[in-house]
Structures are given as C-alpha cells and as structure tokens.
Design a binder for these strands. Sequence first.
DNA 1: CCTTGCTTTGTTAGCGCTAACATAATGATA
DNA 2: TATCATTATGTTAGCGCTAACAAAGCAAGG
Lengths: 341, 341
Amino acid sequence: MRKRRGAGRPTIADVADKAGVSTITVSRALRDPAKVSAPLRERIDAAVRKLDYVPHSHASALASSRSNIVGVIVPSLTNNVFADTLRAIYDELEQGPLQVQLGNSRYVAAEEERLIRIFLGQRPAALIVAGGDQTPAARALLESADCPVVQVMEVDPDPIDMMVGFSHFEGGRAAGHHLLQRGYRRIGFIGARMDPRSRRRMEGFAEALRSAGRYDSELFMTTTRSSSTSLGAELIGALRAKRPDIEAVFCNNDDMALGVLFGCQHAGLRVPEDLGIIGFNDLEMMAAACPSLTSIRTNRYGIGKTAVDMIRARLDGDEPENRVVDLGFQLQERQSTVRRV
Amino acid sequence: MRKRRGAGRPTIADVADKAGVSTITVSRALRDPAKVSAPLRERIDAAVRKLDYVPHSHASALASSRSNIVGVIVPSLTNNVFADTLRAIYDELEQGPLQVQLGNSRYVAAEEERLIRIFLGQRPAALIVAGGDQTPAARALLESADCPVVQVMEVDPDPIDMMVGFSHFEGGRAAGHHLLQRGYRRIGFIGARMDPRSRRRMEGFAEALRSAGRYDSELFMTTTRSSSTSLGAELIGALRAKRPDIEAVFCNNDDMALGVLFGCQHAGLRVPEDLGIIGFNDLEMMAAACPSLTSIRTNRYGIGKTAVDMIRARLDGDEPENRVVDLGFQLQERQSTVRRV
DNA sequence: CCTTGCTTTGTTAGCGCTAACATAATGATA
DNA sequence: TATCATTATGTTAGCGCTAACAAAGCAAGG
C-alpha cells in the first residue's frame, strides 16, 4: 500500500471522529460557534482539548482562498516610530485569529513592490503599508487586491482604500511657527534619510518660515544617510561651521535632535540660550533629556490600533465612517526652545 | 453545474499548459531547477513570466507539510536590542524564499508558549526564539518540533537545538571588573524589567564586586517596570537619596544608562567625576552622548545573521560545527567611567 | 395534517500544490 | 546487441480544510 503522508498532528477528522460529528461541523464550531448547537459545541471543544488540536492554517487558507495573515510593510525595523505602531498592531491582533506577517522595505520602493506581490500571493486577510508613496505598479496591485488595505502614518485625500495617520506637512509647519513665536530668527533645518515623510515635514517647516519672511535655504542641511544620534551631532557641527549665526534648528526626528543636543554640549554651546532645538515624534527620551527637548508628539500607537480597528470593521462587513482618519499631533514644548528674552 | 471556487490567479496548471508540460515538472523547475532540462526550464520560465505566476504558498505548505515560514519570537518589539537582531534576520532571509513570521511574547512566558504552539501549527521551516528560559512545556514542544530551532541572545551548555548569543553573566562581570579597575569603590546597579537576561547580568556584576569585597546590596536597585530613559533618571535619584555616597553605577541597559546621565545632569552632578556610568549593549547613541557613555558592546546584528546561517546549513543537510556559538562582547570604554585620581 | 420557512447537520468535491510511484529516454557496460 | 544504471518526465493520489449544495429536524400557520 502507498505510504500516507503527513500523519503527524491530529486533524479535523480526528476531532470529528472523537466528537462523533462530521468534519464540517467541527470546522463551523471552531470558526463560528453560533452556528452549532450547544451540546455539539461542547463535545467538539472537549475533543479539541483532549487531542491538543491546532487547525492547520495552510489547509484552511487553501480551502477558503483566504488566509488569516495580515501583511504589514514598513520601511524600517530599527526606527522607533514604526516599532510603536507595530506594537499596537500586534497588541490588537493578539485577541483574534489573525497573524501578522511583517515585511521590511528598507525605504526602497522596488522592495516594497516586491513584498506586496509576495504578500498578495498569500491571499492575506488584510494589508497595512506605511505611507502613501507606493510605485504606480504597487498602487495598482493594492487597488485590485480583494482585501482591506490601510496606509498608515500619513493622511492623503486620495487613499488606496483606507488611511490613518497625520499630516507631516502640518507637523513641520507647527514646528516652524513655534520657533518663530519663540522669537528665533535665523532658523535652520537638519534632516537625515529624507524619505517622503521627512521631506513633507521639511516643506511644511519651510512654508512656515517663508510666510514670515524667515526662510533661508543656507540654514537647511539634509543628507540621505540614515538618521542617528551621532549624525545629528555631526550635522549641527557642519551647519554651525558654515553659519555660526544659526539660532534654532528643527530636526526631522528625535534621534537627530538628541544628537544635536549632544553636539552642542560637546562644543560647549548652551541649549536653548545659544541654540534652540525641536525634534519630531516625541520619543520617550525627549522629556528626560537635560535640557528636556521640545518635539512634535505623534500618536504612533494609536495609528496601529486604528488601522486594526478599520480592518476589523471591514472584515465584519461594516464600512468605516471615514476612510481617512487624521490622528493629528501636539507640540510638546520643553526647555530646549525656551528662549530668554 | 457546480461553481468553481478560487479561479482568480493563475495556477501551476496554467503554467504547465502554457509550457506544454505537466504540473510536477513546473513544480520541480521552480523549486529545484537542476532537476529539469534546460529547454523545458526556459519554456517554463517564460510561461511563469508571461502569466505573472506567483506560487500559492499555502497550497505548497499543505502538500509538502513544510512551509517557507521562519517563526521568530521575541519578547519586545520596541527594544532596540531585538530590533537589530531582527533586522539581520530579515536582511539574511531576503535572499531566499523564506518568510519571517514574527511573534511578540511581551516578556510573558505563557504568551511565548502560546506563540510556539501557533507557529508549530504552521509547520514552519525553522524557529528562532529569544533566550533560554522557556517554560518546560514550551521547551518540550520545541524539542519535538521537526524543524531547526535556534535560541538567540544567550549561550547555554544545554540548548534545545542550536544557540547563538553571548554570556550575560560574563558581560555583567566585565562591567564590574571595569568599575573596580577604574578605582570606584561604592558601586551600584540599576535594573528595570529584570527579565532573566538582565538578572544574569546583575548576577555576574555582583559576583565581580563580591570577589573584590565590594558588594553592597543596598546599592542595588531594581524594578519590574519596563526600562526607559526617564525611569533611569528616576531610579538614580532614588538611589542617591538613599545612598548619596554612591560612586558608580552599572545599568542593565543603555536606555537606563542614558536616563542616569540625564538624571545626573538635572541634579547638577558631574559624570564621571561625581558618578561613573556604564551601560549594556552599546547602542549607537552611547558614543554620541556628552559625556560619551561606557557600555558593553554586543553583536546583535551578528546574532541574527548567525542564526540564519545555522538554519540554512541545517536545511541544506549540513550539521553546523558547533551547536552553540558564543559571539562574545567587548567593553567600550568611554568618558563616563574615566575617573580622575 | 400538510405546507412553509428556518435552523442544524451532513455529503461531496475541490482549493493548488507535491510525495511517491511509474515510465520513458538516454547512456554505459559487458 | 542485450542489460543495467541513470536521468528526465509523467500519473496518481492525496495534504487538511471549507464552499456549495442537500437533507433532515423543527416550529408556526393554515
């Protein structure tokens, strides 16, 4: 006789045998208990426990053309910003049967497209992608995907499907207004990586300065190198070498801002007296730093939570009220921008 | 007639038709091209490209009882330590067909066990789990898993299967020796979370002090709260309130160490003159800080890379030379422990 | 009592792929 | 040339689950 394959773990048929029902009844009892009468449900649950049965997710996915996988594509694993959002997604999905599959696009659009292709090949239950700057091909793929798609971290009037985040442009503008209001005049910008979101922050910031007649492109310094604390220290050094008269600087994220602070301390400059500093994201360390650092607080955890809520709603058949949710930001004013007059 | 299901994307049968071969030949051409003659291979490749065929990973997993999923279970998503290791895993696996499935146990052993169960239900190609402190049930599950299992971040003479990391006990001991060698006498410890690895660091540290007759339990302060920069500042404040004579402190990680530095700065204490500080992990910011912070450098990226290498070797049928790889650590001495005599 | 409509359970036939076995084609050897 | 070993391809039967349809059970209404 031909050998049987697999034969390791108990299958739904074993559970059905033990409970004295058909396999489809077991299937229903596990996926939608309301569809099965109480006594059968109990017998089935008992059999499941006794056999230590774990449904074979691949078989389920194949039979139903729908997996329990939520694909998540982020551009970085080491960036705390995404870590918080990811943590929220994991926390939220933990309750249900959905599993996260995480992809790292490393800020490369082509890589993101490749990941979208792979994920779609697995018929995911839903997809979460960071940002709104997909390649046209990637966007087309996502638009024709027959599952909910949530773009996170940004807002845009024209989402692929659903979207939750905030306006980076407005965040940058708020940073600019804050420094102007504090009386700073020669105001600069330091930006690393300069992905599309950082660029929009910079544009909003420049816009604020421009509308006050304070925009000076010489005080803007950017690089495509990835952001880090030491890079922040390095760039403020370079910027001050070129323009020692700079009074305040907006950093495209908090790591850079912390680096600027360290750079000032190493150079013997006082913050905020000699240089005002404002960061972006308001990571936990910003409040602890000495002096504490002003930043634009963003609700990264809330973004992840909302994304999952939107997916859940859609999977339950409800249409979310708004396809685009703006979670906003708050300016957290701290010592690093308190200018003595 | 009964409706057909699925019917969306092209299947392997479509490719086989187009190339004029059988499905199994297509299957072989895709998985192991050497098994198929060159002309057929080319016809098949052309058909794959023309149809934009993506293999259905669930069907493959079901048929072969083996998925292309590498399950990774870490206790935290926001801890930079794991982020670096994860990044290495993603970087390495990107080349091949293997996909990462990431689980977050949040430092809860029962949650880790649950995740192991779920992952095993998917017949993963391999599993990577953080640390060596699984519950007995979890350990039993992993021992009977018919796939490679790598425990990362630690070393232990008795691995479940394979292991790569370093000795936290020795790391702690090195920190202790360093402070002693620098002439510090009243030496303390600050630890948050106090997961098993932090505890082993503390034990190694205490061992070093004890062997020099310098161990003073009053100078050790721990909490189960999760570590953060502000918590570091808070704890050093509490410790100094109790024992103003403390001269140096080892922190169970770098976030705490940075917080201790900030706490000292807020309190007007000089580092290292009034207090020496040494951290653990040597995150990027440690070198940039002012003063720069001494730390124990660990090779987190290397751990992830090595874990994948070990898995690859095993899947290729080779037995790795060593089932336990110790990647060690280096003491990075910086300004925060330079004591003037 | 039968009909109607609902709920609960079962039967059957795949989902798309690959393991195992079968066979044909090729080359090497006696 | 016949025989055997090897390689290249094909046939068949599932992997474990669920969609679609079928049927049985039950209550309410006429």
